[in-house]
Design a protein around this nucleic acid. Structure first.
Lengths: 187, 187
DNA sequence: GATAGTTTTTTACAAATGTAAAAAAATCAC
DNA sequence: GTGATTTTTTTACATTTGTAAAAAACTATC
């Protein structure tokens, strides 16, 4: 059983029928370090899952890179604009390491949702996690200064510190790399 | 039919049974301007709805007020920490005007979700909007400077400008009131 | 319309962060 | 290992934002 299926069942148990039908729909793809998993400006409605590797949601604004989130092994991700609103993606997702990605096409996702109550329950719980994580990050940006945000980052993503460059960390915190370097030297 | 019920059906049509059972569960309460709808630090798992009035999600950090979102007529809101994770609320919700609030208790929400597939679908779509809004605000905080965030605020909440004080606007933008005043005088 | 209270703007100065460029350190390829 | 490339740190200076306090503008009430 692959990680996608296992993670779905852990979040919300599926009926045997639902498991079988989901299994048949699942796709897989490999990405080398630096490759684009989906591209800003295009519509890509898959529900993705990191079987192994590491990825980032990346956006460029006035020449600077900003990172909304990192996704490590066993995490789902989506292009929110596409998935929720059928709009072109506002950001790209880039592999930070060689990564194996599973995905479910949106038509299949919607079909499973309407066919199986248990899958709809999974979908609600998955979206709840997306919402909760976004709000948690939003809070940090709103009322924490850069030093406190870096401490929060170390707390939540500390185990990834070796795998994420200083530039990417700064882009996630919304500060310049120089500023992050200053913060690190201060303590 | 009250606004709560109507908004649920607009987001996702409910079966007659589901409508009837939901109607019986709905509660209502009135709040005067300045009153607390739910209190930071306590667990409050209701799904709230603003029938009329205006409210804010408010949090104090090191003596300063921060506002996560405003909620006007016909909008749902929740205390996310409580609703999603059964944790004490990280913020309070305060009425900015005399407000009529409908709400559904979480036990009833969960019960309706498991009993009616159509209600579970509503729940997923509602949570999707929570997620999408949070991510939209997150983006703004991450890569826009204060001036651009204020322009975004005017664009999205402009119709509420008369009803929201400068102090509350600044608290929403994550900047000082002085700084917001400077931005306004600049243009 | 006068007074008191609140909200918004202005001022002056301090602190934090950004930009650009150079130096230092770490990593990679051969 | 050596040189080339990339990443991180340091430096100097400009800009933005914050804090505190005072002035001005606006509201509400009598």
């Amino acid at each position: 059983m692959n990680g996608f299926l296992k993670s779905v069942c852990e979040l919300s148990p599926l009926s045997e029928d639902a498991v079988n039908e989901l299994s048949e729909c699942l796709c897989s793809a490999d990405f080398k370090k630096g490759e684009t998993i989906h591209q800003e400006g295009k519509i890509c409605k898959h529900l993705f899952f990191v079987e192994s590797g590491l990825a980032k949601h990346q956006y460029f604004h006035e020449g600077s890179q900003f990172i909304f989130r990192f996704f490590e092994d066993n995490q789902f991700f989506i292009a929110t604009d596409c998935f929720f609103n059928n709009l072109p993606a506002h950001y790209s997702t880039i592999a930070l390491e060689d990564s194996e990605i599973s995905y479910l096409k949106y038509e299949d996702f919607e079909n499973l949702c309407s066919k199986y109550h248990c899958f709809e329950t999974f979908a609600r719980k998955f979206v709840s996690i997306v919402a909760y994580t976004a709000i948690s990050n939003l809070k940090g940006l709103l009322y924490l200064d850069a030093t406190a945000r870096y401490a929060k980052f170390l707390n939540e993503y500390g185990h990834l510190q070796q795998r994420i460059s200083l530039g990417d960390t700064a882009a996630f915190l919304g500060i310049s790399q120089v500023s992050l370097s200053r913060i690190r030297s201060r303590k």
